[in-house]
Amino acid sequence: MTTTISREEFLLLRGYIHDTCGILVGDEKSYLVESRLKSLMNETDCKNFKEFYIHAKKNGGMGLRDKIVDAMTTNESLWFRDKHPFNSLQKTLLPEFLKNIKTGKKEKIRIWSAGCSTGQEPYSIAMTVMEFIRENHILHPSVVEIFATDISNSALFLAMNGKYDSFTISRGLPEEMKKKYFDADNDIYSIKADVKKFVEFNRFNLQDSFQSLGKFDIIFCRNVAIYFSQDFKKTLFSKYAASLNSGGTFFLGASESMLNYSSAFQTIKSDGAIYYKVKS
């Protein structure tokens, strides 16, 4: 068995990945394809990556295709990743919504965590909302809806399970938040029910139409679009723009940019955070 990938094999698999799920793997990232698809290649009893490519093309079906997508998109999940989006949410966006709710201009705040993986992002959003409520802001929890989606059943199961080991819990979660919002039992930390109830998890493929999802006030899609091709990014950002209510907010990952992909948003820089507002 050959577990290293040749240039020819890399190009074949890169094309397959792009055609089937819109993810564009950078030219220099053959190691990523090699390391992430190696175990799938072993599982399918293929002797090398070329054989694996042929197998995937022939027998891709939903099962293997899903597994390839899963292997290529598995991402590191951190609590309160990049910190700034959560500060902006607590200090700027939620107070604005509260004002609109008090004056009867709004009834509900809908937030979408797109590509939520194992739950760290939507639960970080929920904890931020709870902190806002604890600061004596009168905001009934029922007016906040956090809609979290991912393509992986496995990731969604773990997110809904809401249990994390001590290593996973330590990644970005302040000690004080851990004490407040998790129950600890024998090195396993379970998110409390009052945080969990804010979040509704659903399986969703970002390649599908967004129409059935309704409109959102805030969308988090961080470190997800990095896996997609330029063309798909353009389509995706225009779909996000259409899914946001007037003046809605869009968060990208710290190392990502909207530049060259969409003119539907204006960039906002505030308190160290960069986010995007959909143009009316």
């Binding site: 939903m62 099962g63 293997l64 899903d66 597994k67 997508v69 899963d70 598995t74 194992t118 992986s152 059943n153 496995s154 990731a155 969604l156 199961f157 773990l158 809904m160 399970n161 249990k163 994390y164 080991d165 001590s166 290593f167 996973t168 039992d185 024998n186 090195d187 396993i188 998890f201 659903n202 399986r203």
Partner: peptide, 30 residues
């Protein structure tokens, strides 16, 4: 559920997507 993971307290981080698919299970069964 944290019951046992090869004697190290480490939760599993993934499972086979193909298995979920073939067993007809998805997020609504969670």
């Amino acid at each position: 559920q944290g019951a046992f993971e090869n004697s190290v307290h480490l939760m599993p981080d993934s499972s086979s997507e193909g298995a979920w698919h073939d067993l007809g299970l998805d997020v609504s069964d969670t």
